[in-house]
């Protein structure tokens, strides 16, 4: 049994883009069981742009699950954006999860936008000015929600979906100076707190596709400018229950929490 996951992020839709993805999306149900959207769905977060997303990515014939990105927050219309997407059947995760039945296999998806802060040894700390403390607390709270959403699912396969990056590996190609604005190790730590099979993110347009968390979870940057196609498709081969337990042990043995 294979679970087929299609994913793309950073499509930045507005009226000028509607229709560009649709020919490829019409073929999607033949090659994937679900489509995950890794944030920055709109150009700058208006309800009108969200309607473009709904037009382009709605009614696909497979479940569509999304997180928002920083662009989707810009105009402070997040509730309207979410309502518009969900009216079109696109489920938006914000520190929450969903379990889908994929031909008898329970696929659990936990999602959150994430935020910045940087990576171990080169990261921001909750110290100093109120603005700096608020910045780090924002990431920390989102990471806590993501970890909880991953751990609490009763499912056979876990996938984490974020906009910001959980590891620096998939940022290679971006200027190192801006890594703290592209992701946080706290997201990686949250992903490693559960037996996650795959972590998908966007945001880093000049990054690279592949990486792994310190706990061994495979990470893929599916930002549209990175994958250079309408979406990528990943085949997950769900392990038997015993094998899952073995993998968790193996991860724990390497010191991950």
């Amino acid at each position: 049994m294979v679970i087929r996951i299609a994913a793309v992020g950073d499509v930045h839709l507005d009226k000028d883009v509607v229709g560009r993805f649709r020919p490829a999306l019409e073929q999607l149900p033949d090659s994937a069981d679900v489509l995950l959207l890794a944030g920055d769905l709109t150009r700058h977060g208006t309800e009108s742009e969200a309607r473009c997303v709904a037009t382009e990515f709605g009614n696909l014939g497979v479940p569509v699950v999304a997180v928002l990105g920083n662009h989707d927050h810009h105009c402070d219309e997040v509730p309207a954006v979410i309502r518009t997407l969900e009216d079109a059947g696109i489920l938006v995760l914000e520190g929450t999860n969903v379990v889908l039945d994929c031909a008898g296999v329970r696929l659990g998806i936990a999602g959150a936008k994430g935020f910045g802060g940087g990576f171990a040894g080169r990261c921001a700390s909750e110290f100093g000015e109120p603005e700096m403390k608020a910045f780090v607390r924002t990431t920390s709270a989102i990471a806590d929600q993501l970890g909880e959403a991953l751990r609490e699912m009763d499912c056979d396969v876990r996938v984490a979906l974020t906009h910001y990056a959980p590891v620096p590996d998939t940022l290679a190609g971006e200027p190192p100076e801006i890594y703290p604005f592209l992701g946080s190790y706290l997201l990686g730590q949250a992903i490693d707190s559960a037996p996650t099979e795959l972590a998908l993110h966007g945001h880093a347009h000049a990054g690279t596709e592949r990486g792994t968390t310190p706990g061994g979870v495979r990470v893929r940057n599916v930002a549209h400018p990175v994958i250079k196609q309408a979406y990528s498709v990943f085949h997950l081969h769900p392990p038997y229950a015993g094998a899952t337990a073995g993998k968790v042990s193996a991860i724990s043995a390497r010191g991950s929490s």
């Binding site: 560009r20 073929q27 999607l28 979406y231 990528s232």
Partner: peptide, 8 residues
């Protein structure tokens, strides 16, 4: 924006 020709 073409459909993928390969899967991972």
């Amino acid at each position: 924006t073409q459909a993928p020709t390969e899967v991972e």
